[in-house]
Design a protein around this nucleic acid. Structure first.
Lengths: 194, 194
DNA sequence: TATAAGGTAGACCGATCTGTCTATTTATGT
DNA sequence: ACATAAATAGACAGATCGGTCTACCTTATA
C-alpha cells in the first residue's frame, strides 16, 4: 500500500530537485514539477503541506544523495590525508561531470538555495547550514587523523572548507573547471607535501 | 535636465540592489521596488526596458561599488603581500559589518544572483562572471609583485581566489564570522610567512 | 467481490507577477 | 512665458503563482 504512495513522493522530490537545481527555486512553479513528474496536484498536496515543505524535502534529499556519493567515493581510501585528497578529486569529477551520480554541475545546491532563502530563521536555510557543517565534520575527522592534534586539525579543517567551497564557486561562477585540482594542490601544500 | 532623470535612475538601481541583495531577485517584484523608492512605474520603464535590464544595472552597480570600496581600502597599502592581506582584512570587516560602505552582509551578491540566473548565455550571469574575473585580476597583480614570477603568481592567485570565495560562503552559509580571518591566516602560510 | 485508500485530471480561487497605457502634474531650457 | 520633456498615480491586461476542491478511477486487501 505504501509502495505506490512512497514512489510518488520520491518521484516528486527527485523531479523537484532536478528542476530546482537547474533553474533555481523561485523560477520553478509547482505546476512545472507536476507536469514533468506526471503526478496530480492533489497527490502533491497529499504528501506535502506546501511548496516550502517540498523544498525542504529536496534539500534533505540532496544532502543524503551527496553524502552517500561522497561516502562511496571515500570507501576504499585510507583515513587521513589520502581521504582529504580524495575529497578534492571527487569534487573535481563533480565539477567536470565525470560522475553521473550527482547529475550536471550547476554549483552547490545548498549555496544556491540559501541565496534564495537566507533568513536565519528559515527552515530551508537551516537545512543548508546543517549540510555544510556535516561536510566540515568529515574534513575535521580526517584532518585529525592526519595531524593527530585537535587544535591544528580544526585549523586545517577550516582551511579545507574554504578551499572546497571556493572550488565549487570558482568552478561554477568563474567557469574554472580546474578549480578543484588547484584546491587539491593548495591543500597538499597546507598538509606539508613538498 | 539630466539631473532629475539620472537621479531617478540611480534611486531605482540603489533601491533594487538593496532589496535584491536582502531578499533575492525573484522574491522582489517590480511593484515593491517602486513602492520603496517612491518612483512611478512609467518612470522605471522609461529608464529600463524590462526587469532584466534593471537587474543587469544592479549587478553593474554592485560591481562598481565593491571595486571602489576595495580600491579605497587598499589605497594606502604597499603593493604585493601587504595588499593581499589587506584584502582579507577588508572581507573580514565586510562579513562582520564593520564597514557601512557595503551595507549588511548577505553573502556575495554575484554568487547569489548567479544562483538564480545560471544560464551561460544569460547577460546577468556574464556580468557576475566578469566581476569575479576582475577581482582575480587584482589578486594576480599583487601576487606577481609578491612573488616576481608569473607562473607562481598565477598559482597563488588561484589559491587566493579559492580562499576569498570560500570565506564569503562560509561567512554566510555556515555563519562563520571568523572565516576571513582564517582565510588570511591560510593565505599567509601559502605566501611563506612562518 | 466489497471496501477503502490513494491517484488522476483539471476547473477554480484569489493573489501576484511583468508590462502597458491614460491622464495629469511638475520641472527645465530658451 | 511657453514648449518640451519627464515624473506621477494608478487602472488595466494577460499570464502565472500557490493552493483547494470536486468527481472519477485504479489498486490492494479482507
Amino acid at each position: 500500500m505504501s509502495t505506490q504512495s512512497s514512489d510518488k513522493r520520491t518521484l516528486l522530490v527527485e523531479t523537484a530537485l532536478d528542476l530546482f537545481y537547474r533553474q533555481g527555486i523561485h523560477a520553478v512553479g509547482i505546476n512545472e514539477v507536476l507536469k514533468v513528474s506526471g503526478v496530480a496536484k492533489k497527490t502533491l498536496y497529499n504528501h506535502f503541506s506546501s511548496k516550502e515543505a517540498l523544498i525542504v524535502a529536496t534539500v534533505e534529499q540532496r544532502d543524503q544523495r551527496f553524502q552517500a556519493w561522497l561516502t562511496k567515493r571515500l570507501a576504499k581510501v585510507a583515513a587521513g590525508r589520502a581521504t582529504i585528497e580524495a575529497i578534492f578529486i571527487a569534487v573535481d569529477d563533480w565539477i567536470n561531470e565525470r560522475d553521473p551520480a550527482l547529475g550536471p554541475f550547476r554549483g552547490c545546491f545548498f549555496i544556491n538555495t540559501s541565496a534564495e532563502y537566507s533568513e536565519d530563521s528559515c527552515e530551508i536555510f537551516q537545512c543548508c547550514q546543517r549540510h555544510k557543517q556535516s561536510i566540515r565534520g568529515v574534513l575535521y575527522q580526517h584532518a585529525l587523523v592526519a595531524l593527530g592534534e585537535e587544535a591544528a586539525a580544526q585549523r586545517l579543517a577550516d582551511s579545507l572548507v574554504l578551499l572546497k567551497e571556493g572550488a565549487i564557486v570558482a568552478g561554477h561562477l568563474m567557469g574554472d573547471k580546474q578549480a578543484a585540482v588547484k584546491a587539491r594542490e593548495t591543500a597538499r601544500r597546507l598538509m606539508g607535501l613538498g
